[in-house]
Structures are given as structure tokens and as C-alpha cells.
Simulated scan of single mutants.
Amino acid sequence: MRIGIFTSGGDAAGMNPALKAFVELTLEKGWEPFFVYNGLEGLIDGKIRKASYQDVAGILHKGGTIIKSSRSKRFYDYEYRKRAYDNLKKHDIEKIIVLGGDGSFRAMDVFFEEFGVSFAGIPVTIDNDIYGTDYCLGVDTALNVIRMLLDNIRDTASSFGRAFVVETMGRECGYLALVSSITSGAEICVIPELDVDFVSLKRRLSKELASGRGYVLAVVAEGSNKTQQVADFLKNDLGMETRITTLGHVQRGGNPTVFDRLMAYKFIEFALENLRENIHHMVGFKDEKFYLLPIKDVVSHKYKINDFLLKLGRRMTR
């Protein structure tokens, strides 16, 4: 059996360990692994090549993806999806594993309905915002990168007695900002999922500053669109010298953590064990177990952050 794999959408640490696991486990089963380079665009352009042990040697520690990624507008058109299907047929590839997010899964679900190519989706995004899974590959590395950067910023904040507003990634989901706020001991957390009571914040922080607090650390998710508002609040309402730091794409890179490396192998192993005919499911991880969830369920529901995490975060919004 010939099986292909590609990475799609935003890159995340954990993709390369997953590619290594894919090649090793596929060959172990006596199947033939194929790489599709450059995501959906590569599927359209026929950038498909048989993979070997040599291709994945020495990639376990690397961030990003050695087979590249893309976002494809062309895949919206039937003629390009047909071309992609013809390219798979040329190589006699029967099934696909997709490392990506819900946008990639939507595209492949249409592809399945039209051409019957079975696939398993593995959730990979640092935003950790895909329905049906508690954990997405790459988020642990991103959180550890943010943790290191926040620890460094706190050193400067405490040395100068300043307020720092740190903006994390997360266009629609505040998971990164929330977990980072909780685990770094931030004084303020601002995410789309929680309302901020600036009156209560002023009352609490004014009391703490009067009692000896020397600095303030605020973590803001980019999707809240409140980074400048928080900075203005700290400067004008609390009278603090304030700096804004936007972390940006450094959050996507870096060496994958031990946890992301192990989970990459587990995701791939479960996907291969269940990659049967007529499958178009995502491999989810919930309650410490792997399971299969129909893609239509994934793309028709919105991810919600765990209530316990929101409860902890609410303390930093007032």
C-alpha cells in the first residue's frame, strides 16, 4: 500500500517529528511512504516523491516542516482538485495523512466526497483551537517558547519597575495567552473569551502597587485587539511606564519539546492503525486517549477553551 503525507497551513514544531514517525512506521509495516511537498499547492503541482529513512534522518529536533507548507486558493476550484487527484493516481497513492488545521480538513473533506481518497487528519496548530481534541501538535513547544520569553521580560520589568504588555498569537482563540498568563504568573490576561473589567483591575492593581508591587506583566491575545488599550490603561490609569512587546512568529519556531516529539509518534501510529477504506476522520486526543472523529463534526463545531482554565484566567481580568 502506498500512503502520502503533507503539511498544510501554519507550521508548528512537531511536524518534523511526525514526518519522521510516518516514514519509520510506514516502512515498518511494509508499506510505501510518499511526501507531498508544499501542501495542497504541491498536491496540485504534482510535487510528490517517495520518502526514505535518509529523508528523515536528523530532523527530529528541527522546528517547521522539511516538506514545506502552504495555503491554497487554487484548491477551491474543481479543476485543480481534479489535477491533484490525477497526481495521486499517477503514483498509485491510496490514502493520505494530513498535518494541519480545520481549513485543511475542510478542503480534504470535499476532496474525499468528490474522489473518494481516504485520509486521516492530525491536528497541528499552535493556537490549539481545533474542535474535538484537547491537544494539537505543536502547542506545547509554542507555550514553552512563550514561557521563556515572558520569564525574560519579567526580569527587565522587575529591574526597571515597568509594566509590560506582551501580545501573543491567537487570532480567534486565546489559548496561548491564557495558559501563558496562568503559568507565568501574569497580573493581567486579556483574551477574546473573557470580558475585562478595567475598573476592578485598577482597584486591585492600585492596592498592590501601594503595598509594594514593583511591576506589572500583562499578556494579551492578538485576537482581542486590546493590546494598545491595555497599555494605555497601565500608563494613564496606573501611571506606570509601559512597554509593548509583540512576540509574533517566534512562537511558531524552535526545537520541538519532548512532549510534542512523543505525541507526534503517537498521533501517527494511531492514524496508520486506523487508516482504512472510506475514512475521512481526524485523530483527536481527549481524556488522555486517542480516538477518531468524523471531519464533518470537526468543521461544524467551534472549539471552546476548558472551563477550568477560563476560571483561572478570570482572576486576571478584574
Rank of each mutant, 00 (worst) to 15 (best):
I5L: 14
S8E: 11
G10P: 05
G10Y: 02
D11G: 02
P17Q: 02
P17N: 03
K20Q: 13
E24C: 08
E24N: 11
L27C: 03
N38I: 01
G39S: 08
K47E: 15
I48A: 07
K50T: 05
A57M: 15
G58N: 15
S69N: 02
F75K: 05
D77K: 10
E79M: 11
K82W: 04
A84S: 12
D92R: 14
I93M: 07
K95D: 08
I96F: 10
L99C: 08
G100P: 06
D102Y: 10
A107R: 09
D109Q: 14
F112H: 12
G116Q: 07
S118T: 14
I122M: 08
I126W: 01
I126M: 10
D127Y: 00
N128I: 10
T133S: 13
L137G: 03
V139P: 01
V145F: 02
V145Q: 02
L150A: 07
L150Y: 09
D151I: 00
N152C: 02
R162S: 13
R162Q: 14
F164P: 08
V166I: 15
E172T: 03
G174T: 14
G174L: 06
Y175C: 06
L176V: 00
A177R: 11
S180H: 06
P192G: 10
L201Y: 09
L201F: 12
K202Y: 01
R204N: 14
L205E: 01
L209F: 10
L209N: 10
A210K: 08
G214D: 13
L217H: 06
A218Q: 08
V219T: 07
A221D: 06
E222K: 12
E222I: 07
D232N: 14
F233N: 01
D237W: 00
I244G: 12
T246M: 06
N255F: 03
A264M: 03
A264Y: 08
I268E: 02
I268K: 04
L272P: 10
L272H: 08
H281A: 09
M282W: 04
G284S: 04
F290T: 07
K296A: 15
K296S: 15
V299G: 03
V299D: 06
K302F: 04
Y303T: 09
I305K: 00
N306I: 11
D307K: 15
L310T: 13
G313H: 06
R314G: 03
R314E: 15
